[in-house]
Design a protein around this nucleic acid. Structure first.
Lengths: 190, 190
DNA sequence: GAAAAAAAATAAGGTAGATTAAGAAATCAG
DNA sequence: CTGATTTCTTAATCTACCTTATTTTTTTTC
C-alpha cells in the first residue's frame, strides 16, 4: 500500500492514522499480462490504483475495432467510473498490458470512506477534478491537432509509455491505424 | 434563482432553508448575444448556471480555427473548470449565442459552500461526475463514429439545440467544416 | 533456443472529409 | 424597409489518413 499512501499524501495533509483507515479498505490484487480486470457489460465492482505494471482501458466499437481510452501505469487510477458509481453495465474493458499489481476498492468501502473520512472525500474530489481536466485536454487535442502533432505530443509527454507499450496500442489511443502510425514514426525520426 | 433551486432539488433531498443558503451565494448576470463571459488567458472567476438563453464554450486553435466544446442552454452549467479551481489562465472562451441570463458563483463562495453545506458538496460531486461521464462519452463517439453517425446522433439527442444554434456551430462541435455538414444534412433528409 | 505467433514496416490504391470559390438565402442594423 | 453582413448551399479539386496485402522483425511459448 506504500505507493497509494504516498499518492494520497502528495495531494493533501493527512495523519498516518487516517491514512491507515483508508488503505485498510483496499486489497491488493495481481493480474497476469493480457488478463482482464473488467469485462464489457459486467458491472464494475472496483476501482483500481496501480502500484506496479500497466493497464489499458478501452472500448470495442460496433465494428469490433478497439479504441484505447486510457493507460494506467504506476500511481495512476483505472476504472469505469460510470459503471462503478451507477452500478450499470460497463462500457469499457480494462486489461493488463504487463503483469500488474493493483490496490482495489469496492463501492461499499469507497462510499464508507467518502462518508466517514473527510480527507478521503477531499482526495476523491481531486481525483475527479483531475480526471475532468485531463479529459478536456484530450478532447481539445483530438479536435485541434493532426495525427503527426498528436503523435509528437504523445512522445514528448509520455516518453516512458512510448517505450513500454506496443505501437498498435498507441495508434489506437491516438485514433490511428498502426500502419499509418508506422509511417508517421518514420517521418518523425528522419 | 428558481431554476437553479429546481436543478439542485432534482439531484438530492434538501430543505428550502439549506437551498436558500446556496442560492444566496449566486448572483444573476445578463449577457447580450455575442458577448463573452470568459476570455482566453484570463482567469475564470466564476462558473455559471444558465437560466435563460444559450452559451458556447470553445477553444481557438493555433491556426485560428474555433472548436466548440460544449453548449449550455437552460439548466446547464458552463465554466472552465481547470481555470476556475486552479486559478490558471483559461484555455476556453465562453460566449453567449443568445441574450442569456446566468447565475454566477465565484470561487470563494463555491469553496465556502463546499466546506459548510454538505448538500452542496454532494451536488458538486454529482456535477463533476456527470461531467466526467459526458466527456468520456464524447471521446468515445469521436473515436468510433463517422461524421454522418455523429451528426445523426446529435440530431436525435439534441433536436432542440439543432433548431436553436447556427449550423456552423454544430459543425464545429462535431469536428467538421460547415460545408461538409451541409452536404451531410442534404443526404440525411433525403 | 527453435518454432509459432504477434507486431511492425513497407507500399499501392482508395475514400472520407477538407479546401476553395462563388452564388443564394437568411439575419441584422439602422 | 433596405442595404450590409453573416450564414448556408453547391460543386470541383485536393489530401490526410485508411485499407489491403506482403515482408521483416520482435516477442512469446514450451
Amino acid at each position: 500500500m506504500e505507493k497509494l499512501a504516498q499518492h494520497i499524501k502528495s495531494h493533501l495533509a493527512i495523519s498516518d492514522k487516517t491514512l491507515g483507515l483508508i488503505t485498510d479498505r483496499f486489497s491488493e490484487k495481481k493480474y497476469r499480462k493480457k488478463e482482464h480486470l473488467l469485462h464489457f457489460n459486467s458491472i464494475s465492482r472496483h476501482v483500481y490504483f496501480v502500484s506496479k505494471g500497466c493497464l489499458r482501458t478501452y472500448i470495442t466499437d460496433f465494428n469490433g475495432v478497439e479504441h484505447n481510452i486510457h493507460f494506467s501505469v504506476e500511481n495512476w487510477w483505472a476504472g469505469d467510473l460510470a459503471s462503478f458509481v451507477e452500478k450499470t453495465p460497463a462500457k469499457y474493458r480494462i486489461q493488463a498490458l504487463e503483469d500488474t499489481t493493483v490496490h482495489a476498492i469496492n463501492l461499499n468501502d469507497w462510499e464508507y470512506l467518502v462518508r466517514e473520512v473527510p480527507e478521503f472525500l477531499k482526495y476523491s474530489r481531486i481525483l475527479f477534478r483531475n480526471d475532468v481536466i485531463a479529459q478536456q485536454n484530450r478532447t481539445v487535442q483530438n479536435l485541434s491537432y493532426t495525427a503527426m502533432e498528436r503523435y509528437e505530443h504523445f512522445i514528448q509527454n509520455h516518453a516512458d509509455l512510448a517505450q513500454r507499450i506496443a505501437q498498435k496500442h498507441i495508434a489506437s489511443y491516438l485514433g490511428l491505424t498502426p500502419e499509418f502510425l508506422s509511417l508517421l514514426k518514420k517521418q518523425y525520426t528522419s
